[in-house]
Design a protein around this nucleic acid. Structure first.
Lengths: 375, 375
DNA sequence: ATTATTTACGCAAACGATTGTGAAACGCTA
DNA sequence: TAGCGTTTCACAATCGTTTGCGTAAATAAT
């Protein structure tokens, strides 16, 4: 008996999903024709194409992506690894990625590393086993080296980092210009007349926190102010962390007149503590934060914050991935996309009567995306 | 020449990923042995097993899930469709699902319907094409019928709804007991001495909003209070919606002394409007909301709210899926899992001096999960 | 009229794993 | 030693799709 594959003869038992073989049998043509007709191959006559398409709709044919991916060696699956899916930032980035990806015919499978390298490693294995077409990752807080990512490169799977990454520039990445964000926020505070500006910093081994801090320092320096180490506190970016840190600052012989926090939650903590001590924001202490979380609009007064352009980051990460796919010939050209942050000025930092500084925002908008290609 | 599959002879060109055939050639055994050794089949000798495992580690063998899935007809992929990934609720549910799923060896691919039926339909097709083992979905706001879900059943793919679903009980679903949530919140307001309690309701064609409203009504009735239709406003569950609705309520000849909102954002809007009018919360108007969003702890006073047990819902949804997989023989038994909500009492509704009502919470905790099996 | 060229399609081998069937090789009893 | 069961493994088909190559007919070029 002839093999079903090449000359399908046996009828398809009802109930089982309809395959190309069924279409082929029904139309009396070969599977080759079906496959080519469905993918709009040039060597198939228009009449045949129509017939195939029509029958496919009629029988409600659903292509089996697995089989196709197996044969072609490349799937339409995209792996995404984030520390956690909750929280505005990563959720928004994933939103951006998924939106762009699905538009391009990709499905995204998400993994959470839970800020744990071991999980991250396992996630990578899983994704590679699933034969994903590419991997987008924001490294966990406990990731200290890139060794487990080597395997991905070895497999020839495009790898894109976003937001969080380690030093070493032989990687593709899309990041926020955290330095500019820190600089903008600090400059704004300076412009409001603040002179003793404190900083809540995050773990310094992550690029994002290091850069925010550096932006803060550079803004001070370029305004002729010498940084005061006692005003810089490396703490958890949580409400509690902010409360404790603010308390420590107030205990200083010469307390600050402003705080730039590397995260909004810590900033909220600072706000709460200040209020509980009867201090006024922004008159006594002005506040500026980072991330532009939803809470900035709920707190009273509303909190000034640097927006991270989450969705744009997701889109950019996906776009970078597609560029890598297309440029598969050129082996060693890594690209970095740098997004420009946007400062949202709100009541927590506005000492003058102006309720918003439009120039700051519009200027930032003009610089939204700048791209640096590197060898 | 012998086929490579059954008696692999040709060496594996370096660089290409190592497959079972490579292991087989290296050890001089058949692929059958490799496959069975890796899956710990009983018919493989312990010595052989060890050797295979060892070589697999050494050559860094990565199984190809796609191939396995193709052959077995079932993949280890799980499809999840949500209206959108942003926002605390769905992000948390997805978190719960992913955590449970990855523990069980499943990868989850997420899709966003963007509250659009057309997208939802396309998402379903995509997932079916990807040969997922099951689909977990929270329907979009614009989904009015179940027709596109029939196809999923036809394919024999387990289907589980969570949170949002349409009427018709021939489906598997895990939902929150929204009625109980509405009841609890309203009863609490009554216990605080409120008598004219208004309600911000959502679209009534979604089960969740309908049930919350009914719980509100039943609580009033069981306390001998006749519902006043003018106090029930069906509005957008947004900050603006809450502001407008609150304004309308205050314009009433006899304004309410409390509001139970079907969502926290609208509740925040109400709070803002009340403050701007110089009214005190909870003394003049007490507030209770739904969802226990992060903003409830940022607003001043903190907002009382009903927690939706997001993570538990995700876990439960996945568990229900696995149960469906195991019980594949029994065709027509659909199951519903009903989670009990938990009321978090906070300052926005506390008129007495007590800062929290522990009995309410502990009582709710005891009822955390109750399960109803149905035919 | 003969040779190129294009158009339209079929053949069969992949992709990498799983699995029912079958068959050696072994130890054991009778 | 013949008979029987157990252990251990190989054969080959199969999942549904893609694709290089071959080929026949139709059209164009010489």
């Amino acid at each position: 008996m002839a093999s079903r594959r090449t000359s399908p003869k046996e009828p398809n038992p009802a109930g089982s999903p309809v395959s190309m073989a069924d279409l082929a049998r029904e139309l009396g043509v070969s599977m080759t024709t079906i496959s080519r007709a469905l993918s709009d191959h040039h060597s198939i006559g228009p009449a045949t194409k129509q017939a195939v398409l029509k029958l496919a709709k009629k029988l409600n044919y659903q292509p089996n992506h697995l089989a196709a991916a197996l044969r072609k060696g490349k799937s339409k699956l995209l792996g995404v690894i984030v520390p956690y899916i909750e929280g505005r930032f990563f959720a928004s980035v994933v939103h951006g990625i998924e939106t762009a990806a699905s538009k391009a015919g990709y499905s995204v499978i998400i993994c959470q590393s839970s800020e744990d390298v071991a999980h991250e490693r396992k996630n990578l294995e899983t994704l590679l086993s699933a034969q994903v077409a590419g991997i987008l990752v924001s490294v966990s807080r406990t990731t200290m080296d890139f060794r487990h990512f080597e395997k991905v490169k070895k497999h020839g799977v495009p790898l894109v980092f976003f937001d969080r990454m380690l030093d070493g520039d032989d990687v593709n990445a899309v990041v926020l210009n955290d330095h500019a964000g820190g600089y903008q926020a600090t400059r704004h505070l300076l412009e409001q007349g603040c002179r003793r500006i404190a900083h809540f910093a995050g773990t310094q081994h992550l690029n994002i926190y290091k850069n925010r801090r550096q932006g803060y320092l550079d803004a001070l320096l370029s305004h002729g102010i010498a940084p005061d180490e006692s005003l810089i506190i490396e703490c958890d970016m949580t409400v509690e962390g902010g409360q404790e840190s603010m308390a420590r600052l107030l205990a200083l012989p010469q307390p600050p007149d402003a705080v730039f926090s590397a995260g909004d939650s810590a900033n909220l903590g600072a706000l709460q503590l200040l209020k509980s001590r009867g201090l006024r924001v922004p008159q006594d202490v002005a506040l500026a934060g980072f991330s532009n979380e939803a809470l900035t609009l709920v707190a009273e007064p509303n909190l000034t914050s640097v927006d991270q352009r989450c969705e744009e980051m997701g889109q950019a990460a996906f776009r970078l991935f597609t560029e890598l796919v297309e440029a598969e010939g050129t082996p060693f050209s890594q690209r970095q996309v740098v997004l420009q942050p946007q400062l949202f000025v709100r009541a927590s930092s506005l000492r003058s009567g102006i309720d918003e500084s439009p120039e700051t925002n519009s200027a930032a908008k003009k610089l939204q995306r700048s791209r640096v290609h590197h060898t």
